[in-house]
Design a binder for these strands. Sequence first.
DNA 1: ATTTAACCTATACGATTGTATAGTTCATTT
DNA 2: AAATGAACTATACAATCGTATAGGTTAAAT
Lengths: 201, 201
Amino acid sequence: MPEHLTERQKEVLEFIREYIEKEGISPTVREIAAHFGFASPLSAQLHINALSKKGYLTKAPFKTRNLKIIGLDKTSGRSIPLLGTVRAGKPVIALEEIDSYLTVDKNIFRNKDAFALRVTGDSMIEDGIFEGDIVLIKPEKDPINGSIAVVLINDEVTIKRFYKEKDRIRLVPANSSLQPATVSPLDAYIIGKVIGVIRKL
Amino acid sequence: MPEHLTERQKEVLEFIREYIEKEGISPTVREIAAHFGFASPLSAQLHINALSKKGYLTKAPFKTRNLKIIGLDKTSGRSIPLLGTVRAGKPVIALEEIDSYLTVDKNIFRNKDAFALRVTGDSMIEDGIFEGDIVLIKPEKDPINGSIAVVLINDEVTIKRFYKEKDRIRLVPANSSLQPATVSPLDAYIIGKVIGVIRKL
DNA sequence: ATTTAACCTATACGATTGTATAGTTCATTT
DNA sequence: AAATGAACTATACAATCGTATAGGTTAAAT
């Protein structure tokens, strides 16, 4: 099925792949030429054309740094912000709060507006959410009863099971050594609902 | 710490982020200008300069399509195989076993040879590993004592805490309703060590 | 009232980059 | 012996693109 490549073409393809892996951007014909010691950019160009014709990469005419290697799947990842702090406010995420970004599989975590938080405390250990875990959160003002919610109380982030009662909100930890709390909706700023957990061991 | 951004700058930064996310390559000043309806590329350039000065992205002079958002590493995704079944054998992964691929953040899960498995059973619930979770596994024949290992016994995959004794292997579940087992090394094919957990809620 | 800052336009220069033309070398094929 | 194809050189052209110069508008600040 895969068309045959010459040794040189394999080398060039491999260089392009590594360059993209490392730099996050595709090399120019001259950069490729420089790497292989070619005196003419055309030398690199011809290899690119061959690789393109054989279906190993795509390019668009006259678009610079636009080589894309087939099969090198960049589309299944989604980059979501990992927040350092959380504050109440209209815009769900303030850019200043973003610590870094985290790549997740977007086939699993479909929500586009999701963001991530690092867990502190052990309030949810019985639900398998430990300190140091990263939780993925879907912004939501009105989570359904029983879901795990992220709530801001007195500028402090807590993760609890969420139950809406008549005029109160009941927050139940998944830790038998801790007590449920009942707060006024006025004191609780509901950030969202936990849709995923990522743990590194 | 993080410098303040104007509304417009946030919009531009967000557009650049989404463009990179979608195209896998950074936009040009003119593409940014076109998106916002700017008549002059300089309008976009000025925003870029401001964002760069405030530390939200980097760029190199005269290098085209070279905007890089700080913290957003397009190369941070890694595609690892998600196995449907596991069999003992020389090549750690047989292609037939691969159900699909899973993208993970390679800054968090650094192991290149890692693969993933869906958890069945509740042997590790007290370690926060539940049925339906996806565990990331680093292939390893000789995991250190106390680590969570994936072991094949009688063609069945089990996840347990691993302890090597004199001539036996002790497999301890993290579930007080289950009993530890001790097996002969001949009956146990050690697949690897659990290095991560991903759960979708 | 003047200044300042953020934001934008119009136009153009020059660097980068993809591409083309014309030719060379060398191993393999027919 | 002639032909072919892969690989490369030298040079140049043209599209793309980052950047610069010179100004305009508006709202907030001093």
